[in-house]
């Protein structure tokens, strides 16, 4: 029996006065990979940014279960935790934004150290980085180079590695394959799945490559105009005709019906 790790209930959030998310419910269990798919502008990024406090929440709440402290309110209308507060509170959450996900003027070592910012990084760095380099050998070779000199794929690796440095229990990834060539994207998705399987990290993924990421996930949510239009085990979502047509780019079928 797996236990829930994060719960977001009736989330209403957005920018300024604009509501982008209109009452979404999602949850993530331990050691589970969950993908959120949806058309452009449906609020996928906004939804996960709400979870970590980068977007203003108007209503609803986000709670995270901590081993010792039980369920903690992370985002509520009354008290919204900023991302740095969440990390400083010791809530084991990692987030990789879609753009600007590395510090370009910092070296790779400094980027990795930033992942340990709230800990005593001198004492943790050596041990953690050795583990990280096993999955990302390229980073060890270029440890003293600036991140701005890395290629798109290497940057994505570094972004992921930085988020993994503090050994999070949940990793929130905003389109990790967005700027990658197809073969690199597949490699990246495989890497993410292996993180779940070997390190037991829960993954919340927002992806444009909806079909492929659903195939690799345990469960999925379909977000449309800020509301959850469908949810369920990934396999079920994949087999539902309507979803295939609308969001999974199943063009052959769509054309047949239209024609």
């Amino acid at each position: 029996m797996t236990k829930a790790f994060l719960r977001a209930e009736n989330i209403v959030s957005g920018y300024g006065k604009l509501h982008v998310i209109n009452g979404a419910n999602i949850h993530i269990d331990e050691r589970e990979m969950v993908t959120v798919i949806g058309p452009n502008g449906s609020g996928k990024s906004t939804l996960i940014k709400t979870l970590i406090g980068l977007v203003k929440i108007f209503d609803g709440r986000v709670t995270i279960r901590d081993e010792e402290r039980g369920w903690l309110d992370v985002q509520t209308r009354k008290r919204q935790m900023k991302p740095d507060e969440i990390i400083r509170e010791g809530i084991p959450l990692g987030y990789v934004p879609q753009l600007n996900n590395v510090f370009p003027s910092l070296t790779i070592e400094e980027n990795l150290k930033m992942g340990l910012f709230v800990k005593k990084w001198d004492s943790y760095y050596h041990e953690r980085s050795e583990q990280i380099f096993e999955s990302f050998p390229i980073l060890r070779e270029r440890i003293n180079q600036r991140a701005s000199l890395l290629s798109g794929g290497e940057r994505q690796m570094l972004a992921l590695a930085r988020a993994l440095m503090p050994a999070p229990k949940l990793l929130i990834l905003d389109e990790p394959t967005a700027a990658l060539a197809p073969n690199l994207a597949e490699e990246m998705l495989q890497l993410i799945v292996s993180l779940k399987n070997t390190a037991g990290i829960s993954i919340l993924l927002v992806e444009q490559r909806a079909k492929r990421s659903l195939e690799l996930s345990d469960r999925g949510y379909v977000l449309v105009t800020g509301m959850i239009a469908a949810k369920g085990p990934a396999k079920e979502l994949l087999s539902e005709d309507k979803i295939r047509k609308l969001y999974l780019g199943d063009r052959a079928k769509k054309e047949k019906e239209v024609g």
């Binding site: 980068l54 900023k82 991302p83 740095d84 996900n101 590395v102």
Partner: peptide, 10 residues
């Protein structure tokens, strides 16, 4: 480099 990324790093 990036205020948002620094924030999510704590």
């Amino acid at each position: 480099d990036s205020i948002e990324l620094a924030q999510v790093s704590g």
